[in-house]
């Protein structure tokens, strides 16, 4: 792909959960993630996009070993993890920090914010845990230092988010996995958090895996985008190219479903039809065919492979949308008009 070696690489990572309660149960395990490959280079911001239940959060957690992958491999700095034991994941976790979807719940309710921000330093036994240094860390994340003496429940959503970022920066990580980092925040505060991420990248060359369904986040910061549908990658590639010319009908549907603050440009027809199928009853063939307006007979029987090209892009579709040509772009605009 590129000359820069990847910081972390997931190769055909799959996650399954057993369904039967009894051992030796006949029920097949549920596949949450299927063969998801992704590499993140230092300083790169990769956005993982998909609907609820597409496996985005699971991927972020599997990458850090909070959920055990059932197949695939993870390579850190060119060295593959020997297995998926907690001991192996320690190497990944030393380089990474995780920002939870609900930052409030990621703090021990009985400890003060200051102590929680110092926690990574205490665990790593490196870095100062003196009050003024923790206060400096908090200021760096845009958190007022007078909040350090508070308990988590006394923080607002935005303050909790900043406290979580301050904790993540406590021992500077090379990778931050951020699960819905803008969920539940005002638009103005969302921008503040994203700018904070860009500053962190600027200062420390930290890479980000942003898990989100918020496309304005993607537009603002993403270098690369990975689109998940029912636990599979349907399209991936450089952010600018995918945003300008999606090749998978699902990607285009996602982009079109973004609300446009202009009544004159109201959509004529819904971008996708129907509901997300259950992962317990995956459709045969291409799993998106039940909702795709371009579906044909082949889509209903044969599953498309994730094919490379052009360039860094990958798409899993029998009939990908046309290449970005002036005419095609024009017709696209007509659709949205």
């Amino acid at each position: 792909m590129s000359a820069t070696p990847a910081l972390i690489e997931a190769d055909r990572l799959s996650v399954q959960v057993p369904t039967g309660r009894l051992p030796f149960s006949q029920k097949a395990p549920l596949s949450i993630l299927i063969n998801v490959s992704l590499s993140i280079r230092p300083g790169e911001i990769v956005c993982m996009v998909g609907e609820s239940g597409s496996g985005k959060t699971t991927f972020g957690r599997a990458l850090l070993g909070l959920i055990k992958p059932s197949a695939g491999s993870i390579t850190l700095d060119g060295a593959a993890l020997p297995d998926f034991s907690n001991r192996s994941f320690r190497a990944v976790r030393r380089q990474a920090a995780l920002l939870f979807q609900d930052p409030l719940s990621s703090f021990n309710p009985r400890q003060r914010i200051g102590a929680m921000i110092a926690e990574p330093r205490r665990i790593a036994r490196s870095g100062s845990t003196r009050m003024q240094d923790i206060a400096a860390l908090a200021r760096q994340a845009g958190l007022s230092e007078r909040l350090l003496a508070r308990f988590p429940h006394a923080l607002s959503g935005g303050q909790a988010r900043r406290a979580a970022v301050a904790r993540a920066l406590s021992v500077v990580p090379r990778l931050i996995v951020a699960d819905e980092p803008t969920a539940g925040l005002d638009v103005s505060i969302q921008g503040g958090v994203l700018n904070l991420f860009l500053d962190i990248r600027e200062q420390h060359d930290t890479a980000f895996l942003l898990i989100t369904h918020n496309l304005s986040v993607v537009r603002h910061v993403a270098d690369r985008i990975v689109i998940l549908y029912l636990g599979r990658v349907v399209e991936s590639g450089p952010a600018a190219e995918i945003l300008a010319s999606p090749r998978h009908p699902y990607t285009r549907a996602l982009l079109e479903s973004e609300p446009v603050p202009d009544p004159a440009r109201r959509r004529a027809e819904p971008p996708v039809i129907g509901e997300v199928p259950s992962i317990a009853a995956r459709p045969p063939g291409c799993e998106f065919h039940t909702r795709c307006r371009h579906a044909q007979a082949r889509c209903r029987s044969e599953a498309p492979r994730l094919a490379d090209g052009p360039g860094d892009r990958q798409v899993a579709c029998h009939f990908p949308l046309p290449e970005p040509q002036p005419a095609a772009r024009g017709s696209l605009r007509l659709v949205s008009n």
Binding site: R61, L98, E119, P120
Partner: peptide, 14 residues
């Protein structure tokens, strides 16, 4: 199973 314990695990807490 709460997030604050998961957070400790990700911080490599013993």
């Amino acid at each position: 199973t709460r997030d604050f314990i998961k957070a400790e695990q990700v911080m490599n807490a013993g």
